[in-house]
């Protein structure tokens, strides 16, 4: 076999095999990197804050792909807030405060402004806010508001208080400019953005290049096997 390998013909064939093998592996790695780059950029895109009106349509539930996305909005806290009972912050019992923010187009979006130890009036006015989109809660969905106090942030409760056209979901406040004295304490967001589409095309191309690399090895091996057999039978290799 060694003598056959070092004939000029088989040296050339082996060299071609190595070149093809390297090309297949290189192209496979390139497609793998492209798949990773696509994933990274899709994840990064989810981290960029966007206008709340782009993620929260009016008159419906929050679309799944909006959950956990950072948003910003400019508007004014108008109507009296809703107070969500039985919410603790750092072990202290209290209330969450949910205010409608009226946007420049006249629509409203629910802002979870934070936590207060008791039901007290909260400041109103024009603000710029950033926050994280979170879906409605859906437990205790049959209950109704009493004096502006609700037990869970369901769509029904919010629509009953602020009208059918309120934008979907709840913005969990991260920052507010200007801050007012007497603002509630912001509560940490617990939702995460959903997954991103996996770049299957690049991933499979990477896999396929590895399969092609396997083909190169397989056929080199099969070919030299046939030449060896022919040599043993005293024929000249093709």
């Amino acid at each position: 076999m060694l003598r056959l390998l070092f004939t000029p013909r088989w040296l050339a064939r082996s060299l071609l095999g190595v070149v093809l093998l390297a090309a297949c592996v290189g192209l496979g790695v390139w497609q793998w990197d492209r798949a990773q780059a696509t994933l990274d950029s899709e994840h990064a895109a989810l981290e960029v804050p966007v206008q709340v009106i782009d993620l929260a349509p009016a008159g419906t539930d929050l679309p799944g792909e909006s959950v956990g996305r950072p948003v910003f909005a400019t508007g004014s806290y108008t109507a009296p807030p809703l107070y969500v009972s039985n919410r603790a912050l750092d072990g202290r019992k209290g209330f969450w405060v949910l205010s409608p923010l009226e946007l420049s187009d006249g629509s409203q979006v629910a802002i979870l402004r934070g936590w207060l130890p008791e039901v007290v009036e909260v400041p109103t006015g024009n603000v710029e806010v950033t926050g994280v989109m979170q879906p409605y809660e859906n437990f205790y969905s049959g209950s109704t508001a009493k004096n502006g106090v609700i037990v869970s942030m369901t769509r029904d409760e919010i629509v009953a208080a602020w009208g059918e056209d309120v934008r979907a979901g709840i913005v969990n406040l991260s920052s507010q400019d200007p801050a007012f004295p007497g603002d509630p304490l912001p509560v940490p967001s617990t939702v995460q953005p959903g997954g991103v589409g996996f770049p299957l095309q690049n991933f499979f191309y990477a896999l396929q290049w590895l399969i092609f690399a396997g083909f190169v090895v397989f056929f080199w091996w099969r070919w030299i096997g046939i030449d060896l057999r022919d040599l043993d039978r005293g024929k000249e290799a093709p």
Partner: peptide
């Protein structure tokens, strides 16, 4: 995108079949 993924896998089968038949035919490289 699914169309290209499908073409990718069909090409894998194509290549296997092509190498097999050209090998049996003793085609040049």
């Amino acid at each position: 995108s699914i169309g290209w993924v499908l073409h990718g896998w069909m090409f894998v089968l194509y290549l296997a079949a092509a190498l097999d038949v050209t090998f049996r035919m003793k085609y040049s490289v």
